[in-house]
Simulated assay, not measured.
Amino acid sequence: MELLNVINLKKVYSSRFGGNHVQALSNVSFSVEKGEYVAIMGESGSGKTTLLNIIASLDKPTSGDVLLNGKSIVSIKEKEIASFRRNNLGFVFQDFNLLDTFSLQDNIFLPLVLSGKSYNEMNERLKPIAEKLGISDILQKYLYEVSGGQKQRAAVARALITNPQLILADEPTGALDSHATDGLLRLFNEINNDGHTILMVTHSVKAASHAKRVLFIKDGEIFHQIYRANMSKEEMFAKISDTLTLLATKATRGDVRE
């Protein structure tokens, strides 16, 4: 069942007076099935962050559409966008996006507070998530009291607590050391195995090798994709590395072959 459908997305940025035009995306189309774990990779400036921002309803395309469970994200009215994000999307960012003056628990509760949920409901939702993520004993701590890995686990808990249809991760391992990265990637695998759909933008071959499918973007277009199928993480890592090398040296679509 298709959860996300990206249809002929085009994004052109214009200068203030319309003199210069930069095409960030060009007719990008792909779909994500419910329960998939998809990574998006590409060089800086390839358009992957623009694509993620449009899917997150943080930006509007010049043309094309994005459907989440059959509903157009692009056509949502401005006054309804914030509510739509809270109810349907979970976000995990490289820099955590946690508030220094809030405890981890209060940071995790924030989207539910904004939705008007009661404390009892928030607490009931948090208990199983905190146990699964291994942060039950640090919920009352503040950011300066915990490690980067623990901050990112709190950010994942915040993403999960609204029971979103889609989890969007933007370079989630970028600010973590190797130990915390390994822990977060194991966690993402567990979350995906529980049925959550994950779409992750990353530069990390290691992070992408945990996904079930990797999309490669070059110059604003989808150039290639790899399905994990029966490959091990080591085989997936090697295949991704080879593909990135080819994409960096080849200039035209279709030069990458299995």
Rank of each mutant, 00 (worst) to 15 (best):
I7K: 13
I7V: 15
S14R: 12
S14G: 01
G18Q: 08
G19E: 13
N27E: 13
E36K: 09
A39P: 14
L58S: 08
T62W: 11
G64Q: 05
V66K: 02
E78P: 06
L99Y: 00
D100A: 11
Q105L: 01
D106A: 12
N107T: 08
L110C: 05
L112I: 03
L114M: 14
S115V: 02
Y119S: 12
K127L: 15
P128N: 08
I129L: 11
E131L: 11
K132C: 05
G134K: 00
I135L: 04
Y144H: 14
E145S: 07
E145W: 00
A154K: 09
A155S: 15
L160N: 08
I167K: 07
L168G: 03
D170T: 04
T173I: 04
A175R: 01
A175G: 03
S178T: 14
A180I: 00
A180G: 06
G183P: 00
G183E: 15
L185H: 07
F188K: 08
H196Q: 14
K206V: 14
R213T: 08
D219S: 13
E221K: 15
Q225G: 06
I226D: 12
I226M: 08
N230W: 00
E235T: 02
E235W: 08
M236K: 09
I240R: 07
D242E: 14
A248L: 04
K250V: 12
R253I: 15
